[in-house]
Structure formats: C-alpha cells, structure tokens
C-alpha cells in the first residue's frame, strides 16, 4: 500500500519536474499565434474591424477579445482560415463591420486635388505621394484599397476603382459542375 503511494508520488514528482523543465526549456518566444493570425489577415489596414490595424486585430483575436468575423476585406475565405487556425466555429461576416467587396484601388482626380496632404496622413501604407499645395497621386501597386483616404479629402476628389482584369491577372475559373443538366 505505502509502496504504491510512494511510487505514484515519485512518478508525479518526476513528471511534474519534466513538465516544468520543458516549460522553461521550450518556451516559445513572442506570440506565434498573433503572427499566424496576422498572416491570414489581408493587411489592408483599413480598421473596419474596429481596431487600428491588422496587427491589433490579430492581437485582439489571439486574446479572445474579438470575433473572427470582423474583417470584410479578408472575406469569407479569411474567416474560414481563421476558424481553422483557431479551432473556433465559422461565422458569417458580421454586417456591422462591412461587406466583402471586390478588390479596388484609390484614384485621385488630379485636376481637383488641392494638395492638402490630408489623404497622405490618412494612408496607412504610405501609398500616396505629394506635398503641401502640390498635386497628390496614389501608387496603385501599393494601395491596399482600405478607403481611409476618402473621408478626409475636403474636396472629395478620391474615388475607389475596381481593379480591371488583364491577361496577366486573369485566372482559370473553378470548373462548372454540370450535374443537373440531364435531370
């Protein structure tokens, strides 16, 4: 009887020590979960999720403070990926945070621009170039389509333009399954 208790106690001590050692020895630096969530987020930095950028949203998700369905640019697919990563249940995109739109870029009507630099300050990825009282323009390849520059513009000269499909950006579509044709 006493031997059995001792053996069990000894086992518990050894296992506890091993676990404690492992916790110290194999401690993961930083928070890889935030990095993984951030990698799924589209990096639009649009703030539609209610956080000031993708990283803060990722941190909030990791802490369990935010739902996974608050990112309209990431869309349905993004939610599915987050659900898979976190083992949470899939939820449709929350309507209060916006709707999924086709990818677009901001375009400045250069004739109307008064050079106020407000949009430059608003752009989260520094994709607008210009100087005070000089015309501004958007670097289309860097623009994430976050729409944050539209509201600050005092003369409403910024609009969103869908990205036109070219021969190079065109992709093969999902094959149409024609099962019901005969039925």
């Amino acid at each position: 009887m006493i031997e059995a208790l001792l053996v069990m106690a000894l086992g518990a001590v050894i296992l506890g020590a091993a676990l404690g050692y492992a916790a110290v020895r194999f401690r993961v630096e930083g928070d890889p979960l935030v990095e993984k969530i951030d990698a799924i987020l589209p990096q639009t930095q649009c703030g539609q999720c209610g956080f000031p950028g993708c990283k803060p949203y990722a941190q909030a998700i990791a802490k369990g403070e935010a739902e996974i369905n608050q990112c309209p640019p990431g869309g349905d697919e993004g939610i599915h990926k987050l659900a898979d990563l976190l083992g949470r249940e899939y939820k449709p995109l929350s309507a209060e945070h916006g709707i999924e739109k086709p990818k677009s870029v901001a375009v400045i009507d250069e004739a109307a621009c008064i050079g106020c630099t407000l949009c430059i300050q608003a752009c989260p990825v520094d994709a607008i170039v210009g100087a005070a009282k000089q015309m501004h323009t958007v670097i289309a390849t860097q623009c994430t389509g976050c729409e944050l520059c539209i509201a600050p513009c005092p003369v409403d000269c910024i609009r969103m333009e869908g990205i036109a499909e070219t021969v190079d950006s065109w992709k093969w579509k999902y094959p149409v399954v024609a099962l019901r044709r005969v039925a």
């Binding site: 951030d38 987020l41 990096q43 993708c54 990283k55 860097q142 994430t144």
Partner: peptide
C-alpha cells in the same frame, strides 16, 4: 502584396 502592405504599415 499583403507582406508588402504589412511592411509599409509597420
């Protein structure tokens, strides 16, 4: 593109 955006944002 997302990586570039992240880099530029950071």
């Amino acid at each position: 593109a997302a990586d570039t955006a992240r880099e530029r944002y950071e």
